[in-house]
Design a protein around this nucleic acid. Structure first.
Lengths: 164, 164
DNA sequence: GAGATGGGACAGCCATATTGACGTATATAG
DNA sequence: CTATATACGTCAATATGGCTGTCCCATCTC
């Protein structure tokens, strides 16, 4: 294969692939998150509420500080969301057993029902995308996304599975 | 392989894979977009400005209505961002040649320089993720994301390449 | 000339994030 | 036991980036 000469800069040649990834990630993310907005709006809730519900559902008895790390927002921002969700009885709290300063967060029955309903829209979209792309693609999808996440955060994300 | 019985519901069994995708997409997207916030903040710009710069860079002589479709926001929201970028001379406009009501959007030299600088951060992150995941994974990454984007929007996204 | 379209603008609103300071309960180290 | 750190909450003020509704002008198209 007598290819004349290698590219001057691999980074430059890959620019189009990079931009393609950036754009697909933007539109894919947007479309997925948009898919639950209507459901949230009927309840007067926003995406911030959903994120809290989602992670608490995923990892019951999560503490406030753990949730703060996952969401990467300030205590004040989370506070409003959490207060609202507790008032509406989607979430309930208990003091921690080892450390009674902690508040363990957990969905109520209606909170779990709401999360499940919202998740249905996510599942439909994601399942359709998985099916269309094929299982081999799904692994690649995960791997690239993992590469976008700093190493120190990956354990946190993985913890949603094991540590829950 | 005498596996006893198939799962009651394939959707249920796949729930974990779906959630994994949702979570990686959330954290991956967040980390990528966060990576340019510092650069934007030093200039007093926000992500909305970057999105406009990005798409105009990608498709010079884009019209306002085309940009509106890409960003999926209202004219008013875009107006503020665009006005600011024009005032700061990152963007310039010309009337359309066929339709003089149109405004064709284009980066100035300093706008192009800014976009390139911001893109550098995106490129580094994305290139590292691609490299770590391997080229086979990149295709899968694209395919799944394409599956998340409604068919009617895909041509618009593809147009960033051909129609630019 | 009539109506549709591309673009812009005003006023006001809302959701979600921020910072900084401060307070209280509990845990833990000396 | 005291000191300090931690977990959580809260006040006040602010910024960003969306939204709606209404109205406007220029231009294109029929």
């Amino acid at each position: 294969m007598a290819v004349p000469s290698p590219p001057a800069s691999p980074l430059f040649l890959r620019e189009d692939e990079i931009r393609r990834g950036v754009e697909l990630l933007y539109f894919g993310y947007s479309n997925l998150t948009n898919s639950i907005d209507a459901g949230l709006a009927t309840l007067g809730l926003g995406r911030a509420h959903h994120r809290a519900l989602y992670f608490i559902s995923r990892q019951p008895d999560l503490t406030v500080s753990e949730l703060l790390k996952l969401l990467a927002i300030t205590k004040q921002s989370l506070g409003r969301v959490l207060t609202e969700l507790i008032e509406r009885e989607y979430i309930e709290t208990r003091p921690g057993q080892r450390d009674r300063r902690q508040k363990l967060l957990r969905l109520t029955a209606s909170g779990a029902a709401l999360e499940a309903e919202l998740f249905r829209a996510l599942r439909e979209k994601m399942a359709a995308a998985y099916a269309q792309a094929g299982q081999g693609s799904v692994t690649g999808f995960w791997r690239v996304l993992e590469g976008l996440i700093p190493v120190e955060d990956l354990s946190m994300v993985a913890g949603l599975r094991s540590g829950g």
